Simulated assay, not measured.
Amino acid sequence: MDIVKQIKQHTENLQTVCDRLTAAQLKDLKPAVMGFYYQLPGFEAVIKKYIKISITKDQLTADIVNGNLESYQTAIAKTNAEMDEYADDYEEPEALDIFILEALDNAVADTDAANLVSLFTGVINTLDYYENFSDEPGYWNNLQEQELAFQLEILSTMESNKPLSTSVYQERYNNVDFTAL
């Protein structure tokens, strides 16, 4: 099967399942999926550089869980308003930085299915980036294929109202070396 078609179908499946979840379930999933992004190189430094806020992974997780998101939303909006891609001093973020920034934006946005789907597809896109630019494309391709099934397993768990650990992604990718490429 063509990988583009497979991922398109997977994204549609994610959207369908996420649309059936409650707002509370969607909110509960965000910190779990963010566990993946926390493992990317320089997560906190990227946020500080581009959004101009100092955060820790633990504080961000707690704020997502407790719904304390306004300060993040304000900081992101301010950064977006001040960004001038045509300025002489504009610095294009690296791909990993973009994945982190998009994940933060989706994690702190109002809880809805589209933001959660974007978090999940961002994981796939990040693994695809590593596959395309690392010296071990087969390794990253295998992780990406496993990730598709893992995401559906997570959503199935949520649909059946079983508890899900917020550290599920941190545990899953704990031994993966996400070095800067």
Rank of each mutant, 00 (worst) to 15 (best):
D2T: 06
I3F: 07
V4L: 09
Q6S: 05
I7K: 06
K8I: 11
L14W: 12
L14E: 02
Q15I: 14
Q15L: 12
T16E: 08
V17K: 12
C18N: 09
C18Q: 00
A23Y: 13
A24V: 13
Q25W: 01
L26D: 03
K27G: 00
K27N: 09
K30V: 00
P31D: 04
V33W: 07
M34Q: 05
G35F: 02
G35Y: 02
F36G: 03
Y37G: 03
Y37P: 04
Y38C: 07
P41Q: 09
V46A: 06
V46E: 07
K48D: 03
K48S: 03
K49I: 01
I51P: 02
I53Q: 10
D58E: 11
D58M: 04
V65S: 07
N66Q: 15
N68A: 09
E70M: 06
E70I: 12
E70K: 11
E70S: 10
S71E: 09
Q73F: 13
Q73N: 04
Q73K: 14
T74S: 07
K78A: 14
T79I: 03
E82V: 00
M83S: 04
A87F: 09
D88W: 03
D88I: 10
E91S: 08
E92T: 12
E92Y: 00
E92M: 12
P93T: 08
A95V: 15
D97L: 04
I98Q: 10
F99H: 14
F99K: 07
D105I: 01
N106D: 11
N106L: 10
A107I: 03
A107R: 07
D110L: 13
D110Q: 13
D112P: 02
D112L: 01
A113P: 00
A114F: 02
A114N: 04
F120C: 08
V123R: 10
V123Q: 07
I124S: 11
L127T: 04
D128P: 01
D128Q: 14
Y129H: 15
E131A: 13
F133L: 09
E136H: 12
P137N: 00
Y139D: 02
N142P: 00
L143P: 05
Q144S: 12
Q144Y: 12
E145M: 13
E145L: 14
Q146V: 00
L148Y: 04
A149T: 12
Q151T: 00
Q151N: 09
I154S: 00
I154K: 06
L155S: 02
E159Q: 14
N161A: 11
K162E: 14
K162M: 15
S167W: 01
Y169H: 13
Q170Y: 05
E171Y: 14
Y173L: 10
V176K: 11
V176H: 07
F178I: 05
A180Y: 15
L181C: 07
